[in-house]
Amino acid sequence: MQAHLITEQTVARIRLTGRFDFSGHREFKDCYEAALNEPAVSQIDVDMEDVEYLDSSALGMLLLLKDHADARALPVSLLNCGGMVKEILDVANFAAMFPMR
């Protein structure tokens, strides 16, 4: 998996590409830590458009991001969830934890 951070003014967007599983742990963590360290950032979006698949450890990483963001009172949204990704998030009922756009 690849993770890219694009910060535009106050919005930090983490764009993920490929299979989102434990092997992407370090990249994802580096990305969201960089986003959380930007003082100007007031919102974090995770763009799932190019994610082919995610497993339970990926769900765990999203929770970890949310936990850190909550501590800074930053909202976290999931963007462009479709197909299999949406299905997996639905089974996990993650809509209760993350707004999805």
Binding site: L63, D90, A92, N93, M97
Partner: peptide, 9 residues
């Protein structure tokens, strides 16, 4: 599944 997994919420 109508609920979050145990330990999430």
């Amino acid at each position: 599944s109508r609920n979050l997994a145990l330990g999430v919420a």
